[in-house]
Design a binder for these strands. Structure first.
Lengths: 108, 108
DNA sequence: TATATATGCAACTTTTGGGTTGCGCAATAT
DNA sequence: ATATTGCGCAACCCAAAAGTTGCATATATA
């Protein structure tokens, strides 16, 4: 059983799938046309994404539309928050340096 | 050659390393004490993280202090931004309701 | 009803990744 | 000067993952 969302987005093909499906729900076949691999390979990627709930299904006859689940993706954002302050701090430090450099010449 | 930041954060041990080092720069040995693996295993994780520039080195004698590079982590945040609107949008919730209605009727 | 289409699943192969062991090298300590 | 410490690197092993092929099943169409 696979459920690690970080592992899920590690693969570049899966990230591309997410980008496509975030724009528009798609079937596996429609999706596979965007890639250079077999339908089954794409299907396996879909399974990984669905297992960790980044995708949800919607069956319509014999077709299955996969939809993007943004709330799951938000978990990544939540994990990132603990680091956010670090790059915001660095920005302000950099700002300070640039201001000091600029103050030798002129202001704007 | 490994340089994929998404692949780098896929491993739980590496994510733990990032959390530790974000708080305080550390040497490989100090780091390894926090985990149940060998120093070499941790060292390999460090290499992965350093290769994709999530960590930077600072040599001090025979010790090497690894520092967190928040600007690189910010790239993940940047990638996430394309999805942010999906979970922030109120329409995202509306979509979900509509999709549930559709799947109950099983038509399109 | 017979056939084509959309999909999932299981078996297999190949590649990748994580871990361990063993080594070499440079910096420090005795 | 010799021993110890901190570290990286390479070789190897094993498990997991990605891709392919071949099926089975359900739905649509002729």
């Amino acid at each position: 059983m696979k459920a690690d969302i970080f592992q899920a987005i590690a693969d570049p093909t899966r990230r591309a799938i997410l980008v496509l499906i975030a724009t528009q729900a798609m079937t596996p076949n429609a999706l596979a046309e965007h890639f250079d691999t077999t339908r089954q390979a794409v299907s396996k990627h879909i399974k990984v994404l669905a297992d960790c709930e980044l995708l949800t299904q919607n069956k319509a006859g014999r077709e299955i539309y996969y939809h993007f689940n943004p709330m799951k993706m938000k978990e990544i954002d939540h994990w990132l928050e603990q680091f956010k302050k670090h790059w915001e701090d660095r920005f302000s430090q950099l700002d300070k340096v640039l201001l000091n450099l600029n103050s030798n010449k002129n202001e704007n």
